[in-house]
Design a binder for these strands. Structure first.
Lengths: 362, 362
DNA sequence: TTGAAAGCGTTACCAT
DNA sequence: ATGGTAACGCTTTCAA
């Protein structure tokens, strides 16, 4: 071991090493690894041989420094307990990897405030940032935009900052669910919200209560479940312990809806949907299992992720592009957790969905 | 906009800009942002003011290039459907972020083979790689080690490559479950494996069948569930349709165990644990909900993640450190999905765990 | 098509 | 304690 400075015996081969071995210039090596570059067929072959021999791979970090594009996309995610997000993360990662991007994970720590997270995001020169966390203040989004980093909100929007977003049909879903429950003959409706100031929960609620109000129904009872399993369980307990217990609950997402289902059946001995109808939102994970068989407004994963990938790439290509709010259509998937109205169900693929004869358009 | 070349109006401030404004050298700026550097209190203050004024943050990419440490840790994850992994990912990310590392996500695509993934991992100069995917061949681990990158296997081991790992007590868990089921008076046992050649499934099975053999019991029936919800459901159907239907099934993880529970109750009308006992492994997610109330050998998330974080950091500090296989102790959490033996249950915290009077040591 | 050379934004090593 | 300067490994002009 006569190496004077290497901390590891394994010194990575660099483009210069390859150039020396191939008998070409270092620039030629760079060209050999640049898709559209002008290089002679034979030169490329020589470089490739040498590279193989040395186990050379272009250093992505160095490349990022010169190209000023990191090909890294930051993703701030939390609440991975909610099954929707891991699925999103996996699909996003695959989609972006196919386009040569990688996801750098930022996990907001409730203990620390958002600022250090912002600093880290900025430090890493991410090409874009995807916010898939309801928790994170929209302030972060605004600051990144201000710093010139394209930001995409996934499954949420922001009314303060002017930031692009991909969401499901939160408003329409809420309306449809109201109509569905009323058509099912329910008399005492309730809503369990997620986090109060999250756009997703607000929109779903607005659709729900909006439709009810427009059609002369009493406003629903209301509790807050904070998108959390335990908090949603507690909300359910409060609701179900009332003397005027609701006969139908719309829960702002499936994750909380499964909690409500558990409490209703196992703690209150209620039969679903005989004693209580339950409708969720997302149509993911355990909600589909027979034990829950949840009627739920679907947020179609792949269309949403595809839209997100396309938008992110577009924003990177053209940072000046105008903000867009893409809403991906879903449908109300009917299963066994809520009483089924006499009319309006049509089978679609392997699922049953509900389509009111004449949907009231907002 | 007279800027001739900027693609974005927002050009990031560099250390040179800050130096100019603060009236110091660029080296001084670097020192101001380097924790242990020797710099006068007053100089640092001047630099900090200037930095604040310009919105300056050291460029992590450039830093990585000179320090030859990216402070990025690659994590290859898949099967995020299994609730255990999202939890792991979130905890790992938090733990590493606290130590100044970030996770770069690599999602193996079943369609492509592992080689491009390796190339990408290498290109990114990750400081270490955590493999938290049962799918990925251990070949990847070996190649990374060969390239001088510290590799840590999480929730799996490899017998081919000489790679460090953090796992739960797969072997002991399997043995304990065998003992538990026999003590519960079950006569016809079955095992549902994950992926055949995954160390995790193999070890759990080896513990299970090993104990049975040592104590003169017939070998269990066996099916393969591939760690997949649908495949596990199918395995359960095959098992439960037999004329000599098992009276207890040990399923290699909770994710599959919930599938088995669904099939047993909803398709076969079996009552659990009266007609069938079920034991899983992991003690995560839906398994804890009343609907499943799964008896399961716990893999304690935080101890495992803490161990992983510590080991990764250690490996980065000292790449020559010997391989270590850390086994994090767990215990058999007793709930309602399996008949409870007359003796051996002790309450521990808010859970009931099973401790045979005199555990047979391997 | 090719090679030389100038960055990219840092850190690290020198002298001072 | 400080400033000058040489890397780090690459892409990208610019001439040839």
């Amino acid at each position: 071991m006569s190496e004077p400075r290497g901390r590891s015996t394994q010194r990575h081969a660099t483009a210069t090493d390859v150039a020396r071995l191939a008998g070409v210039s270092q620039s030629a090596v760079s060209r050999a690894f640049t898709p559209g570059a002008s290089i002679a067929r034979e030169t490329r072959a020589r470089v490739e041989d040498a590279a193989r021999a040395l186990g050379y791979r272009p250093n992505a970090i160095a490349r990022s420094l010169t190209t000023r594009r990191s090909r890294i996309i930051g993703v701030a995610a939390a609440y991975l307990q909610n099954h929707f997000y891991p699925d999103v993360l996996e699909a996003l990662s695959k989609g972006l990897q196919a386009r040569g991007y990688h996801l750098l994970l930022f996990t907001p720590d409730a203990a620390r405030d958002a600022d250090p997270l912002l600093q880290e995001v900025l430090a890493w020169q991410v090409d874009a940032l995807i916010l898939a966390s309801t928790t994170l203040s929209s302030a972060l989004a605004g600051q990144c935009r201000a710093a010139g980093i394209p930001v995409l909100l996934f499954n949420r929007t922001s009314r303060h900052a002017d930031v692009s977003s991909v969401t499901g049909e939160n408003l329409r879903g809420g309306r449809l669910i109201a109509e569905f429950l009323v058509a099912g003959g329910h008399k005492r409706l309730a809503f369990i919200a997620g986090i109060e100031n999250s756009s997703t929960s607000r929109d779903r609620e607005a659709g729900f209560t909006g439709w009810l109000a427009e059609h002369g129904h009493a406003p629903p009872l209301r509790e807050v479940g904070l998108y959390d399993f335990e908090a949603a369980s507690a909300a359910a307990r409060r609701l179900l312990a009332r003397s005027d217990r609701p006969d139908a609950i719309f829960v702002a997402n499936d994750h909380m809806a499964t909690a409500v289902s558990e409490v209703a059946r196992h703690e209150f001995g209620l039969r679903i949907p005989r004693d209580l109808s339950l409708v969720g939102f997302d149509d993911t994970g355990p909600a589909r299992w027979p034990s829950f068989s949840l009627t739920s407004f679907a947020q179609p994963l792949h269309p949403m992720v595809d839209a997100a990938v396309a938008m992110v790439c577009e924003m990177i290509e053209d940072p000046a592009a105008p903000t867009r709010h893409q809403v991906v259509p879903g449908e109300l998937v009917v299963r066994g957790s809520a009483r089924i109205p006499p009319e309006g169900c049509v089978s679609r693929g392997d699922a049953l969905v509900w389509r009111p004869v004449q949907e009231t358009v907002v």
